[in-house]
């Protein structure tokens, strides 16, 4: 079984490129049993969402017109 270090690296890459079937399987198998990596996956998705929302904040905060 791959380590948490490897799995989280894959999870991270999954946000920026299309993973292979093998990679996706490895992740799914791992996170079924590992709650920390499961949290990591959930939280990195959340961070992406927050970053987008933050950009909207930035745009509306610094001026009147967008």
């Amino acid at each position: 079984m791959r380590s948490c270090r490897d799995i989280t690296a894959l999870v991270s890459q999954g946000l920026d490129r299309k993973l292979s079937l093998g990679e996706r399987l490895a992740i799914n198998l791992h996170i079924m049993m590992c709650s920390r990596c499961r949290s990591f996956q959930r939280q990195t998705r959340f961070i992406r969402k927050a970053a987008r929302r933050y950009t909207e904040h930035l745009q509306s905060r610094s001026g009147k017109k967008t």
């Binding site: 791959r2 380590s3 948490c4 270090r5 490897d6 709650s35 920390r36 990596c37 949290s39 990591f40 959930r42 939280q43 959340f46």
Partner: peptide
């Protein structure tokens, strides 16, 4: 991470992000 690749500490569940 620790040298064996396991989390050192690591994520806990977040309440209602």
């Amino acid at each position: 991470f620790m040298s064996n690749g396991q989390w050192n500490g690591g994520p806990s569940a977040w309440n209602d992000p």
